[in-house]
Amino acid sequence: MPRVQLPAVTPKHKAWNKGRIIGQKRPLLPKQVWAIRARLELSGYLRDLALFNVAIDSKLRGCDLVKLAVADLVKDDRVRERVSIVQSKTKKPVQFEITENTRDTVIAWVRSPEMIGCRFMFPSRFHDRPHISTRQYGRLVRDWVTAIGLEPSGYGTHSMRRTKAAEIYRKTGNLRAVQLLLGHTKVDSTVRYLGVELEDALSIAERIDI
């Protein structure tokens, strides 16, 4: 009896993105920022509150945020109003402002007993690491958004970076300003990052002289 060769069967693997929200992470709305801030204040988590506030103000990538040194933000026992750092990704400097509320939380954290002898703003609780890792930062962001009832898969560390940038763009429509604040070398990158439609971008650009 001749053999019948059956077609090869390729095992089906579960799609890596099944059930996940993919794409850009959403920025937080102002009311959500204040909700997280209030929870952290009530909990007395000085480090997390300082980290959250600096993340919103600085608009830094996670890799640059976790490496901030105390000397980057504090001089002569006072928190700087403006800070400049060199970005890890682009090797170019970017400046950011530190608002009064953030300055208050930063100085309170720096003066706390936990920060005695610490070089980095956000030291790790693991002795073999000088500062928290981007993975630790990501876990904290997930905890923050979950605590106020948001779906954590829709948010991430880039949500922190995008939050103030998105609000500045919403209120001013000034792409050039947002480009400078995010440290993007091309305005095209800013357009994609904010999810701006081309027609919207062009209409805004027509109203702005640089």
Rank of each mutant, 00 (worst) to 15 (best):
V4I: 12
Q5R: 07
A8L: 11
A8C: 02
V9H: 15
V9K: 15
V9W: 14
V9I: 15
T10S: 12
P11H: 12
P11D: 10
P11T: 09
H13D: 08
H13W: 14
K14V: 12
W16K: 13
K18M: 15
G19M: 14
R20C: 02
R20H: 11
I21Y: 10
Q24E: 11
Q24K: 11
R26G: 00
P27Q: 04
P30S: 03
V33S: 00
V33F: 00
V33P: 00
A35V: 00
A38I: 01
L42N: 09
L42P: 01
L46T: 09
R47P: 11
L49V: 12
A50V: 12
A50C: 15
N53I: 00
I56V: 14
D57E: 14
S58E: 11
S58H: 02
R61L: 08
R61M: 08
R61K: 10
R61N: 05
G62M: 06
G62E: 09
D64Q: 04
D64V: 05
D64E: 06
D64A: 04
L65P: 03
L65K: 03
V66D: 07
K67H: 07
K67E: 12
A69N: 11
V70R: 12
A71M: 09
K75I: 13
K75F: 11
D77M: 04
R78P: 02
R78H: 13
V79P: 10
R80V: 09
R82A: 13
V83W: 05
V83D: 13
V83H: 06
K91V: 03
V94S: 11
F96C: 06
I98Y: 09
N101I: 07
R103Q: 12
R103P: 05
D104S: 02
D104T: 01
D104C: 01
I107Y: 01
W109C: 07
V110H: 10
S112W: 09
S112E: 10
S112Y: 10
G117T: 08
P123R: 13
S124E: 14
S124Y: 14
H127V: 15
R129I: 07
P130N: 14
H131W: 13
H131M: 13
H131A: 10
I132P: 00
I132N: 06
S133T: 15
Q136M: 03
Y137C: 04
R139F: 09
V141K: 05
R142L: 03
R142H: 12
D143V: 11
W144D: 07
A147Y: 01
I148K: 06
I148R: 04
I148F: 05
G149C: 00
G149L: 01
L150D: 00
L150Q: 02
E151V: 09
S153P: 03
G154C: 06
G154K: 05
Y155W: 03
S159I: 08
S159A: 06
S159V: 07
R161E: 03
R162A: 13
T163D: 03
A165M: 06
A166G: 03
I168P: 02
I168E: 11
Y169N: 06
G173K: 09
N174K: 09
A177D: 07
L181Q: 07
L181D: 01
H184S: 10
K186Y: 13
S189I: 14
T190Y: 00
T190L: 05
L194H: 02
A201P: 02
L202H: 13
A205F: 08
R207P: 00
R207M: 10
R207K: 15
I208P: 00
I210F: 10
